[in-house]
Design a binder for these strands. Structure first.
Lengths: 205, 205
DNA sequence: CGTGATCCTGACCATTTGGTCAACAAAGGA
DNA sequence: TCCTTTGTTGACCAAATGGTCAGGATCACG
């Protein structure tokens, strides 16, 4: 389990690995793992297929690398919940951060959605491990606030699920949302006040 | 656009088409369209691959058939919203029906999730057509109730999105929800009161 | 029964796709 | 400059996969 002493990446390695991951994010997030081909990734990255496989051992390797790299970014807002802060504002800040991430990084959201739908074959250990710890920490903080009467009491885990569901929905189901709303709408802009109102009314003591 | 006069299905056709669709639902909902193979579907249906292709022209055909067949069932609860009913109870009944569908038909939920994630290649005309009409009708009813002061005013479209997101999340992200909650939890059972409380507090005048 | 329609399958095909490899090109340090 | 390391690719392979087809089995019905 000790970290391998990796030789530092060369300039070219840095650049090309980056291009591959960027291209792969684009392809995986639109077609899913099975639907994506190394050829597509190579083209999106502007490299030849064998060259892609020079930097990553396999398609699986690219996918796993993407997921683990992005997971940190994805969970960051939850870690930033501050137990010393004002309860309602902390929750609202998390909701806003999560919605903003869905707006700015919809491909990342879809990448995770595909992975979870599939049964999370590449994330099983993380799901029951690190993720659960992070969520439990947040749930404990929320529960504490509720016990102090500073937040309306609800199940903290399901509160967190609701935030995930409501914010990621706008990224993952983007086409459906836009098809139903029709042109002239910005789903993310409209969702802001809606979610704000929803969580304020539900959690206000 | 006129309906073709189809010869009635024989007993065997009825049975085998049914088995294929059942098997395909299972396979598509766990692997997505591209991840599913006709061989897997055939095995799940207990038929040989050529026999599957005797009943359906192509893999695409099976998939499209599944989606259109299931879409009606999926939208049924929304159509049942009754403008003459008691507003809050109508909404709560819809929420409960949708959660119950996620619980009983998680595979159907995931099938749609995959399709939307993919950009809904097989549902584009339905999304902007029939679905939009159904949603708009429901949104109009909700808006009417809000205008009458019988429901707290919120954006009706986003209210509907929120119900979809919150209920389908438990089916689509099942592994994640269970991994976070740990053993000894029934997410669907816990979600019931949570959603009940959420919508009552948000919509109660 | 008989016979036409329906049903079923082993064998096969073309294409796609993940991945390999030998050989060649470019960097880069001494 | 030379030579080792690093980077790149065309050609290739084996497996998987969507789909076809000729022919055989079974069914329904007069």
């Amino acid at each position: 389990m000790a970290d391998q002493l990796q030789p530092p990446l060369t300039r070219i390695q840095q650049k090309n690995r980056d291009r591959i991951l960027k291209g792969a994010l684009s392809v995986f997030s639109t077609s899913g793992f099975r639907g994506a081909t190394i050829d597509q990734i190579a083209e999106a990255a502007g490299l030849s297929k064998p060259n892609v496989l020079y930097y990553f051992a396999s398609k699986d390797d690219i996918h796993k690398s993407l997921l683990t790299t992005l997971l940190d970014m994805w969970l960051a807002p939850m870690i930033r919940i501050n137990p010393e802060g004002e309860p309602l504002e902390e929750v609202m800040a998390y909701v806003r951060a999560k919605l903003e991430m869905s707006r700015r990084f919809p491909r990342e959201s879809r990448l995770f959605a595909y992975e979870i739908l599939q049964g999370a074959p590449h994330l099983t250990e993380i799901l029951g491990g690190g993720l659960r710890d992070i969520v439990d920490r947040a749930a404990t903080i929320l529960q504490g606030w509720m016990d102090q009467g500073r937040l309306s009491p609800v199940d903290p885990h399901h509160l967190i699920f609701s935030i995930w569901a409501l914010t990621q929905h706008y990224a993952d189901f983007d086409v459906q949302v836009r098809a139903v709303l029709g042109p002239g709408h910005d789903p993310f802009v409209e969702a802001g006040p809606f979610l704000d109102n929803l969580y304020r009314t539900m959690l206000h003591v």
